[in-house]
Design a protein around this nucleic acid. Structure first.
Lengths: 213, 213
DNA sequence: ACCTGAACACCGTTCAAGT
DNA sequence: ACCTGAACACCGTTCAAGT
């Protein structure tokens, strides 16, 4: 809402930053071209100098965030690489709930996502997985990472207040177990929990790796 | 678009069916109160006799679909129950892409979801998991199921044409591995693939079950 | 009881115009 | 070159009115 400080002409980086700020803090539905323009201290149509449409802006937001995911390295141990890759992706999606929600709608739609998928698959193939199994491993880990990010985001972002109210408002007769372990559910340290499951999946696929070298 | 066949007054079931039909086939953004009303052969405001708001309608849609998930049984083997539970949920979410996308935004927000979570947790506790581990297992399997459903939905629903174009339009220099295994990626039989990863997660947690009985 | 129709405050986006 | 302002075809939703 704060008007722009400088008289410098608006540029794309400023627009994308503002868009992420609004969408991550207030939810994707709050990201309006008019609201975004106000955040940039400008009129709605000024934004269209830098993005073709709102959809194009959203693509740029995703690419910008995914640029922070550590690119897997074919030379290193595949398990370390996969762990670092999906932990990094998870951390970024939790930090940017709006991007998590966008990726939920089309997981591999962005150019950044396909580029990362290519490198990730390359690591698995280099490690000795055949093509079918490499795809299976990558999709399993990716599914888990996306779902885990969404769950954590659903608790930590702007809906948190609602959810806590939900869990504490449950009756013991209708939800005997959930009311008892609800505290664990609501307060579970997401990162450790997420890492645990990810490790289990990776270890499981390690036993399916055709004996190599 | 087809006008209503009968003169019977509109009821909630008809509205929910129509809403799922539109949202699953044409995407959530196509689900408009006016579009939905037209689908029911009625004016937009007539729908408001049966739902308080569009958000309330969406909640009802989720609950209606989740009613089809097989409720886990405390008495049976926990592994069979978890497998059937998440396979069932996955199948329903793939069948109803719109519901998958809604659940991505607030995984445990609906009353049906919390009810199912309660039963699922009860099965795990009955099997001998302590509260912390039961939560961990349930969230890991749930994350994987949600993410896997979203990935499959992203390929099989109304965005499929886009995605295939994406995968076939990639250049070999930029995506050497993805172009080679892209066919596997696009044509992978999602259900078998999904079941494989789910089994691995369940088996992994089985080894962490405190020795019982 | 059930539905319609006009209206309001919003959207994304187009187009002509300002400086 | 960069931005504004009015306008268009949409939204969800309110309210008064029809039968």
């Amino acid at each position: 809402v704060s008007p722009r400080k400088t008289d410098r002409p608006l540029d794309l980086a400023t627009v994308v930053d503002a868009a992420l700020r609004v969408a991550d803090r207030e939810g994707l539905q709050a990201l309006t071209m008019r609201r975004l323009a106000a955040e940039c201290g400008v009129t709605a149509m000024a934004v269209y100098r830098h993005v073709e449409s709102k959809d194009a802006l959203i693509d740029v937001m995703v690419d910008h965030v995914l640029a922070g995911v550590p690119v897997p390295d074919r030379e290193a141990d595949w398990r370390d690489e996969m762990l670092a890759f999906f932990l990094g992706a998870h951390a970024l999606l939790v930090e940017h709930p709006a991007v998590a929600h966008i990726m939920a709608q089309r997981p591999l739609a962005s150019t950044a996502a396909t580029a990362l998928a290519d490198r990730g698959l390359a690591v698995l193939v280099a490690a000795g997985f055949d093509d079918d199994l490499a795809v299976e491993v990558f999709l399993a880990l990716g599914s888990y990472a996306l779902g885990g990010s969404l769950y954590q985001v659903g608790r930590s972002s702007w809906v948190r207040a609602d959810l806590t109210r939900r869990f504490t408002g449950l009756t013991e007769e209708e939800h005997p177990t959930l009311t008892r372990v609800g505290a664990n559910m609501a307060d579970a340290v997401g990162d450790a929990l997420f890492t645990g499951g990810l490790r289990r999946l990776i270890d499981s696929y390690a036993t399916s790796l055709p004996a190599a070298r």
